[in-house]
Design a protein around this nucleic acid. Sequence first.
DNA 1: GTCTATAAGACGATAGAC
DNA 2: GTCTATCGTCTTATAGAC
Lengths: 210, 210
Amino acid sequence: MSGEETQPRRLTRAETKARTRALLLDAAAQVFARKGFAGASVDDIAEEAGFTTGALYTHFSSKEEVFVEVFASRSRHRLVEAADIVSDADQSPDETRSAMSRLVVDVADNDVDFALLQAEFWLYAIRRPEFQQHLAGQFRSNRDALTAVLAARAEKRGQGGDAPFEELSTVLLALFQGLVQLRRTDPDLVPESLYGKASHWLFTGLAARS
Amino acid sequence: MSGEETQPRRLTRAETKARTRALLLDAAAQVFARKGFAGASVDDIAEEAGFTTGALYTHFSSKEEVFVEVFASRSRHRLVEAADIVSDADQSPDETRSAMSRLVVDVADNDVDFALLQAEFWLYAIRRPEFQQHLAGQFRSNRDALTAVLAARAEKRGQGGDAPFEELSTVLLALFQGLVQLRRTDPDLVPESLYGKASHWLFTGLAARS
DNA sequence: GTCTATAAGACGATAGAC
DNA sequence: GTCTATCGTCTTATAGAC
């Protein structure tokens, strides 16, 4: 036991700095989720990470900067996951639908901070025009990614080549957010299979369009 | 011009008290929407209403109480409106759908505080178990009202008597919230007719279910 | 790079004059 | 019923010791 089981050698200065920064960002995400942007103090964040405010201010210049960095580090993860689920063309439509439903349940029930942070980011963005544009761009790229996946999948099956996949993507995205928020408020409101069922209805109805 | 054109007589003490309270609540709604619950100060609210903090504290015992009262006074309005639209059985399905779409656009584009306050209420509730139950109950009653309306309308047309209207209501509610948030972030993301289109797909797909 | 100590101000809420 | 004045606390951010 030389104390080196987990780390092959001492961390360089740059590495410890990056590690502290990451610890602070993780702590900040938790605290922002628990208390909100305005309700969280810099002291709360530093203490949660095991440091002091003085240490935090060597890594970030303000509370706002911490928040924006948390946002940047937490984006993309979950919705890339969603696109992966839909893009897995090996599974049957039934499997895809149940995977979609499972994602809603998993996010709402297990990723306790997700919906909270999402709401905090949204409010922060709506109140700051510059940041709002940033968030809009992100939504747009999520929608575009989903649109491409839907179109590819439809083409593979040789059907619905001219369907309004972009509008459908927007609906699926909005419905995901809405259902996660609802289930987070009360799990009984959103049955485990609902997201998959709803998308089934959407696809069927869209295919039968006049 | 005796200065009595608008008011037939002087307000009683109780009436001025109620009026001040209402002014404070309106101002509070605006300020909470603009700055959030934690970001808004009691001074901001009182000043917006044209009073001082001392006056505010004769009507409310704390900032929390003001917030809860704002929530109570602002609930129900918009979603009752939604139920009215769907329950108007005189109009054709096409008219109903376009009215639904218009509601999303109207709320997102014109009722500037609606989505902000909704998000603030949700965050406040999720962080306070007692209030969370209250919000869940409200969601449930909105869903039930919509479910009843959908079932009544379907019965009138003599179709889909055994359809899962409760699940459909939940989906329509979640989608409404999601689309309003999305359109508030960037109007270009949500075409004016999208909510109606999506519900058309949902109804058609549901009717064709196996 | 992280600490302690502190500056300068904003905050929620109360007391007493009018 | 509303005002002014004020208390004590908590806030963000900085300066200097280690």
